[in-house]
Design a protein around this nucleic acid. Structure first.
Length: 493
RNA sequence: GGCUCGUUGGUCAAGAGGCUAAGACGUCGCCCUCUCACGGCGAAAUCACCGGUUCGAUUCCGAUACGAGCUGCCA
């Protein structure tokens, strides 16, 4: 069997949409699972939609996610160029389009926009009551220019008339193709439009360039979104028209938002960049995307990219759309954070800590306190803000049923503890623990009765990462005492 | 409107004629515990609907409903 070759062929039109990212991932996995090649090609045939810098963005994401390609614009293995706008310059697509014209599989079309417009036939606007008056139209080209004589075509061309080249699809019969995921699909040719292959600006359309390049680059497996399923018969006809072998198609289900609608920019987490900004790790994003529409068939959920390569079998890709579940991504990201070694963790976490804490505390200790308590790095801020500034809080917080504390008991504890803490010089966890536990044992009270008031006093919060010892160690003697005194004042009022 | 695809708990999903219908996220409860997490244990919750085929359908077939995609000189 020939070596598998797949390709990721995005259009540089903006951020890296998660749907695109998953396609890239699957392309990569399909190839790598079998030791094949993964190519990277840029499809920039639509000058109107080209976004400056979008190409660099794609490079960056591929690098961050570890999707390393074997061939690409900066890695020519003899199949280049790998950027379609560069391929256009050599007249490549025009050459192949003309081959099809020669064979009668395509034809020149000189129809004006106006004529095309007149072909639109309104479909009975299903007039329900609602104001859903979206005027539906059916527009299928009528093959008008197919009937032009060779002489007429020549004359038009000579006169410099703008033209496109269209695919000539039979009006009868059927076309079938087989998808690895969805099985064999057959459509009536009369439902297929004579799609444009070469645009009037001389650029190929995506559909055409895609087929030509996939063939020329020896692509064996084409992975793409479900949205291409209905145009695939046209691809099939193109391959047949050229006499080329079709690749294996692997169509993937859609990714939707919680409302089961196509994930759009509005959802706020539709691109890799969005997710990165929201504090997610590339490894977690990749892991999560892999599981959206694919399952290993085992109980396993956490996979490194390498482990995905080993486990990935494209026959297990699902058919039905998957909801992008933020909850699960957050959980998974938390798992990845916990699994990070401390050095790497701190590299990620420290910048977030610095945004909140400017006082000269031990930021690494603060960061370590939240490691098992966050799901994304953006969760850090609200958990550690009390270090910077003692928040205003209600003394009701000292009343805790389960801890068996009241305002009175708390005040007593804090007043008892104050001189001991003033006398203490060793503000290490061990030193603080010794002092506090010594007092608790002496008094014969429960741990909670002694520790709840002090933790509340030094943090001003109901919930904190770490307990009283850890917080006081970081705060140090001076600030700890200040906060305890503040608490005593508040409780004495 | 036409064409195409899809439908297992709230979500991701395994299962491919006979099972108490896996597992995970989330939710809830319990344990651990100075709070919150972490960790451990447990619970609730699912085969869209209707017909067929079959001794037997979540699984096969056909309608229905619902959802989605395409219907661009976008990809």
């Amino acid at each position: 069997m020939d070596k598998i070759r797949t390709r990721y062929a995005p259009s540089p039109t903006g951020k890296m949409h998660v749907g695109n990212l998953r396609t890239a991932l699957y392309e990569y996995l399909v190839a790598k699972h079998e030791g094949g090649d993964f190519l990277f090609r840029i499809e920039d045939t639509d000058q109107g939609r080209f976004v400056e810098g979008a190409t660099d963005l794609i490079y960056r994401v591929l690098k961050k996610t570890g999707l390393e390609y074997d061939e690409g614009p900066d890695k020519d293995k003899g199949n280049g160029p790998y950027v379609q706008s560069e391929r256009v310059k050599s007249g490549l697509y025009m050459k192949y389009a003309k081959m099809l014209v020669e064979k009668g599989e395509a034809y020149y079309c000189f129809c004006t926009k106006e004529r095309l417009e007149s072909l639109r036939t309104p479909v009975n606007a299903a007039s329900e009551d609602d104001d859903d008056k979206e005027v539906k139209e059916v527009r299928k080209y009528d093959k008008h220019c197919l009937h032009l004589s060779k002489e007429e075509v020549e004359a038009n061309l000579k006169a410099g008339m703008p033209f496109v080249i269209r695919q000539n699809i039979p009006t009868e019969g059927t076309t079938s193709f087989t998808d690895a995921n969805y099985g064999t699909i057959t459509v009536n040719n009369e439902d297929l439009d004579d799609m444009i292959l070469i645009k009037s600006d001389g650029f190929p359309t995506y559909n055409f360039a895609n087929v030509v390049d996939d063939h020329l680059m020896g692509i064996t497996h084409v992975v793409r979104g479900n949205e291409y399923l209905s145009s695939t018969p046209k691809y099939t006809r193109l391959y047949h028209a050229f006499g080329w072998e079709e690749p294996i198609y692997i169509h993937c289900p859609l990714i939707t938002n919680e409302e089961h609608q196509k994930l759009s920019k509005r959802s706020g987490h539709s691109s890799f960049e969005d997710l990165e900004e929201q504090g997610f790790l590339p490894e977690a994003i990749v892991n999560f995307m892999a599981l959206l529409g694919w399952s290993s068939g085992t109980d396993r959920e956490i996979f490194s990219l390498q482990e995905l390569i080993e486990a990935f079998d494209y026959h297990h890709i699902n058919k039905s759309p998957s909801v992008f579940d933020m909850n699960k991504l957050r959980w998974m990201n938390g798992e990845y954070i916990k699994a990070l070694d401390d050095k790497k963790y701190l590299e990620h976490a420290l910048p977030y800590v610095k945004q909140v804490v400017t006082k000269p505390y031990d930021l690494e200790k603060i960061a370590m306190l939240v490691k098992t308590r966050i799901e994304t790095f953006c969760d850090i801020a609200e958990k550690i803000d009390f270090f910077e500034e003692l928040p205003e809080y209600d003394t009701e917080m000292y009343v805790h049923k389960k801890m068996k504390t009241t305002k009175e008991s708390s005040l007593e504890v804090l007043k008892d503890l104050l001189p001991r803490l003033e006398a203490l010089d060793d503000y290490s966890i061990a030193g603080i623990e010794k002092t506090l536990m010594g007092y608790i044992e002496e008094k014969g009270i429960k741990n909670g009765q002694g520790l709840w008031p002090i933790r509340t006093a030094v943090s001003g919060k109901q919930m904190t990462p770490g307990g009283a010892y850890e917080i006081m160690e970081i705060l140090g003697k001076e600030e700890s005492l200040r906060r305890v005194r503040t608490a005593v004042d508040m409780l004495e009022k």
